[in-house]
Design a protein around this nucleic acid. Structure first.
Lengths: 336, 336
DNA sequence: AATCTACGCTCCACCGATTGAGCATCCAAG
DNA sequence: CTTGGATGCTCAATCGGTGGAGCGTAGATT
């Protein structure tokens, strides 16, 4: 409340409060953590201690509490990047849901570097996390191993692994639907039923493989074969995608399946770099509120972040048998 | 390295390692935290302890370490949202820079709710942060007060305050330049030197006021007055901006200054909702890699996140006299 | 031979909060 | 007057890591 400078040189502890209140540290502790009824502290004393704590601007020393308690109530998340809407939404939703459950969320971002992923996982162990959500990790099994050695439950999000339960989007179904839409729009607008291009991601990465499967299946439905050369997977980088686009020799009337918003940045930049931008149609796996309005976009496949995280927290709260991979449907958002 | 199940029921402590190595906990501690030379532990023993720690998958218990050490080496950041590029970039850069300095970054996001801001600040005190970067807070002075009571250095980022050093963009200069560009493009494309609209933000908020000042100054330069009704500041919400747009009766040939990417979402949605979208030109304060390609966009004013955070860390490392507000220039990014 | 110094290590108090065990006090029942 | 129970509180051990103080031994110096 009021300023009380020069009295407290450091932040007050329960011992300081106990001295001021003329009581014991254990009474103060139990009042401030809510166990005072169980410990038969009178309401009068509880009241007084609370008031003094307020006046002194007391804040519990979490490290000390965590050291003593057997449960830390800390839940960790490692995530590749903050700077796109998908991962941003995941981080935000994770924080909210953790707090709703009385847990302390700790997030760390690994810049998509495998070495940093492992380091981040170790750091999470040091924080004494009870559970770790591993998002979009290149090697989730490596991390799951670290976790199981430390008796920490791990959940894979976005990218599946073989040693911990996973929650992922239904990449196959999403890619199937998105490819169908792009194909039919290309047919409607240009009349040519040509096979589409597939741009972005990494061929080894599970999500990319699943999406490529959906992409191929939609082509087969339409009686089309996908030429090898149509698929360019140079990783998650706008710059690499941009330089790759030049090789394809994309002509008017083409259709493009873009495998992430980061790849889409490359595609869009390439388009605008062309002296005469080709007339084409594209669709993208992942949604972005601005990209969805871009002229040649037919629509975007939005992953259901809320459902994915609800499922992840359910898996944490009631650990499943075995190592399931749960697939969450995506939602197609056409260009408005 | 190898699995060593069923041996360790819990994560090992320095005492466990000491027992295995046949030495004392303090030797183990000093080896693992690097002070072993100072403490005259032999290289041979240090080697052996390191190997055993590795084998056992030891990870230091950070809460215990933090409790003991007088410095926690934790640095906190509170931030309104993760889900836009500006704040996403800030969070990411903050993490990187903190780690480069051997600090542990802890970020929490407050959903732009004043009550959550204060709660988040309290939580940061509980984590024993040594320093707190307060980003885009609605009431930075309230938080600065909490911090000074707990002897925690605070720095305001993005939104300035009166009780802690602040690092902000040069909103006036940025808005001046952006307004000039929009005005000249409107003139070039439509011939009509009409005053622009100003959309988004809150009238009480410092950044919005500064930008409005730049906006007005650019109009005066051009011999134009800004009619009151041209400025609509309904907060940081796409939905509110969208509904506000309807009131303005924007006609062909207009120019719009959009005060944030979140407001831009509303503007763009409004445009696409119109049966016949008006021909207009807009510019936006804040950059987004997709929005920058939208057809009627003349360009975006990008805040220099790296410079802002470098400055913030400098202020942390060498605390300044008084309570300065440092302004960082922005960079205009035209539509490619 | 006695003293000194460097070396290599261990002992133990401590950080702040938590919690099982235990100690008075008081009122009621036997 | 004693026993029993409830009430209201305090004591002290503990969590894991840290670091100042100190101890025994070996080799060097006087």
């Amino acid at each position: 409340m009021a300023d009380d400078d020069e009295i407290t040189a450091k932040r007050p502890t329960i011992y300081d409060l106990a001295q001021i209140a003329g009581t014991s540290a254990s009474a103060v502790s139990s009042v401030l953590n809510g166990t005072w009824k169980k410990r038969r502290i009178s309401a009068r004393l509880a009241e007084r201690i609370s008031r003094i704590a307020e006046e002194q601007g007391y804040a519990v020393n979490l490290p000390a509490r965590m050291l003593r308690r057997e449960r830390s109530r800390v839940i960790g998340m490692i995530i590749p990047k903050y700077d796109n809407r998908y991962f941003g939404a995941i981080a935000e939703r994770f924080e909210t849901m953790a707090r709703e459950r009385g847990l302390f969320p700790v997030i760390t971002c690994t810049q998509r570097e495998p070495a940093l992923e492992v380091e981040a996982a170790r750091e999470m162990m040091s924080y004494q996390v009870e559970c770790l959500i591993v998002t979009g990790a290149t090697d989730p099994d490596r991390i799951a191993e670290l976790c199981s050695a430390a008796r920490v439950r791990a959940i894979n999000l976005d990218l599946p692994g073989g040693r911990a339960p996973s929650v992922v989007s239904d990449n196959f179904a999403g890619a199937l639907e998105l490819t169908r839409v792009i194909l039919s729009r290309v047919r409607a607008d240009f009349g040519t039923p040509a096979p589409l291009y597939f741009i972005g991601g990494r061929a080894q990465d599970n999500n990319t493989r699943e999406r490529l499967r959906g992409f191929t299946a939609a082509h087969h439905e339409a009686g089309l074969a996908v030429p090898e050369g149509n698929c360019l997977m140079r990783g998650y980088s706008a710059a690499k995608t941009l330089s790759a686009m030049a090789e394809l020799g994309i002509a008017d009337g083409s259709g493009v399946f873009v495998n992430s918003t980061i790849a889409l940045e490359g595609v869009v930049r390439w388009l605008h770099d062309q002296p005469i931008p080709p007339e084409l149609r594209f669709g993208c796996f992942d949604w972005d509120p601005f990209a969805v309005f871009l002229p040649q976009n037919v629509g975007m496949m939005q992953q259901d972040v809320a459902a994915m995280l609800s499922t992840a927290f359910q898996l944490i709260e009631s650990p499943p048998e075995g190592v399931p991979t749960i697939r969450i449907p995506c939602r197609f958002r056409p260009r408005p």
